[in-house]
Amino acid sequence: MKIEIQNLTKNYGGFRAVDHLSFSFRSGTLTAIVGRNGSGKTTTIRSLLGLIPMDEGKILVNGVPGPLNLKRVGYLAEERGMFPKETVESQLIFLAQLKGMSSRDAARSLDRWLERFGIFQYKKSPLESLSKGNQQKIQMLASLLHDPDIIIFDEPFSGLDPVNMQLVIELLRELCAEGRCILVSSHQLPLIEQVCEDICIIDRSRCAYWGSLKELKVEKGGSLVRFTVSDPVPAALNAQETAPGRYQVQLGTAETPDFSAFLQKLLDTGLSPDTLERSGKSLQEIFLELVGEEEAIQ
């Protein structure tokens, strides 16, 4: 399955929230949509789901224009919301029924997912009696209970502790491996980098990059050598003080054509590095560069 968004444009009065945005996501590939606050991510998702009308553009499902079949979509909204007074079981079965499931199938699926999330003991508890993290899990579970083909998660990591973030990462990988069509929106770029293959970077309502994350890193990530030292560093190295009395030096590929030669040179300076790392730029760094470039253009 492939979902394509073509030339999506959405205006709020005189403000253009999304400007001719095009990207796609498909089964078996995890796609991320990232951007700064107010860049238009949530508007894009809401337009895709038909919650708000588009001013321009179209949605193609497997190449055919038309809206998504919402019964087959699992959606985790950015604005989290459930029924706090109702029991976990009652509200999840209701939400699954709204997606077209029979109550019996919903009950069976509920048991399986509660076990999977390790919260089976809260089945009969009112939602408000659960911890915030467990409430987040219930919310996520509500979007998965009906076994959707298309999964759209808006900020799935928000409010989760590191253990639960890891749980969600593993879940996303698992769902992707099962051939689901997944779109994730998030600010948590280090986490996105771990799980996504395709990425759409939105800046100021427009697409700054759309394509493979791997290619983006090859194109924009370069090759870096980073080392940290506790002693003051010669000014020519442009060291950054990352913590009191701790300096990081970052050198691009151009300065280090030969890694062995670089190491020798470093030892010759008399500096004793605490850490040494050879890598490309992180997604966060590429994102900041891209967004910075866009900002400079504007």
Partner: peptide, 12 residues
């Protein structure tokens, strides 16, 4: 106010 409507109206 519980913000559950967005979930519901993407179902029906």
């Amino acid at each position: 106010t519980n913000k559950v409507m967005e979930v519901v109206t993407t179902s029906i």
